[in-house]
Design a protein around this nucleic acid. Structure first.
Lengths: 223, 223
DNA sequence: GCAAATATACTAGTATTACTATCGTTTATG
DNA sequence: CATAAACGATAGTAATACTAGTATATTTGC
């Protein structure tokens, strides 16, 4: 029998009170919160509703995360840790940095379409959450504190890794991090705009217009 | 005696319950909310606190705005209406579309530094709010409804106007709105990152790195 | 296989937020 | 100067975001 390899990440213990990966309830919290946030949006999602859905009291969920905001940070960290793994996989053994950057932009600007993991984390839904809600993870009054605790380490690491490819292509380039964070955040926003404020984008019939736009933008700048 | 011209905008009546510009209390609500949101951030700002600050009961503020979110939308609309006016002023009688786009990017990527209006709206503080909090005006579960009501008309109009300059430079360009909304939102975010998550940017000693970055990005793409 | 530790369930309760309602008084305006 | 509109004062509600305490399972270590 073929056993699919289950990806295991060590998420920084600062991000939770009790490791959700260490118990049945914890895993239920993660998988159900992903589908619930996806359905109703982060604002309408509450620990009370989650508790109802998994038949556990609110107070039990608080043992894992001090609040729903830390849960969102946990989910985003999981996503970026996983994405760095995907990036490494997609770019090793590719000699040309231009090709590697091209693959990286594909990964960063498109939501996940297939869930090839068999864990309790649905990666398609998680990536949707990242595209539509991740900005709420760091755009709050507590950013500085949370940043000190390392809440955004995984995201910064991804930006760094792709920024390094940019520097391989053009070692004198002054703004590698700005460029990559503009692409990532821009792609998330353009996707959101296309669904809710289409006048701020340019919807066409072509597939992957957002990816195409950011590739042209990046490569014309780097040449 | 020289009387400075006071700029008057008609803000869409859909955005308020009672026009704050029509009464003393209304103007106090606007000017005090701008300084309070600036000081404590939008999340910590409440109508109760505002009421205390201006010595009026919460319930009186609700007569002007159904909630604090609509007040934020009012403020952003005011800003974008004013910015379109500034754009028009900065670009009329400039023949070259390249020069006009250059001026437009200056306006869109830099916070306001001088308040030359003598009204109850402090434009320096308002522009700071736009840079740091405006994303919260449209990144909510109620976007679609609010969009239908016209809450984001002023913003879309600015994106359109600058997008039109892009098309003058390159009539075949496919993504004028994407490009401009990327610049605007990107500049806001990079400013925020530089203050809270500097690893996502490239802070240098140079002045106006963000403006420089987006100008290079845009003009290299359009050529 | 059983005691000790740990995890979870159940219930209750608090502070704050985001409103809504009512009514009396002040202020503007024709 | 009457009358409508605006504002102030007070009270109250539902929901959210927690915290506390105690009872009951479940795991684990010997």
């Amino acid at each position: 029998m073929i056993q699919k390899l289950q990806i295991q990440f060590d998420i920084d213990p600062e991000l939770y009170s009790k490791n959700p990966d260490s118990s049945k309830l914890g895993r239920k919290i993660i998988s159900n919160s992903i589908s619930m946030i996806n359905e109703m949006g982060f604002e309408d999602f509450t620990f009370k509703k989650l508790g109802l859905a998994i038949n556990s009291p609110e107070s039990s969920i608080y043992r894992y995360f001090v609040n729903k905001h830390m849960l969102l940070i946990y989910l985003t960290s999981w996503y970026w840790t996983w994405t760095e793994y995907r990036l490494a996989f997609a770019t090793t053994n590719v000699a040309s940095p231009l090709d590697r950057l091209d693959s990286a932009i594909d990964l960063l600007t498109q939501p996940v379409l297939i869930d090839d993991d068999i864990s309790y984390v649905n990666e398609i839904m998680l990536s949707k959450i990242i595209f539509s809600e991740s900005i709420k993870a760091y755009h709050t009054k507590d950013v500085d504190e949370e940043n000190k605790k390392g809440c955004f380490k995984a995201y910064k690491s991804v930006v760094n890794r792709v920024g390094a490819i940019v520097l391989e292509i053009n070692p004198d380039f002054k703004y590698p991090h700005m460029l990559i964070s503009t692409v990532i955040e821009g792609a998330h926003q353009q996707k959101y705009f296309s669904e809710h404020l289409p006048e701020l984008t340019d919807l066409t019939n072509e597939q992957n217009a957002i990816t195409k736009f950011y590739k042209e933008l990046v490569f014309s700048y780097l040449k």
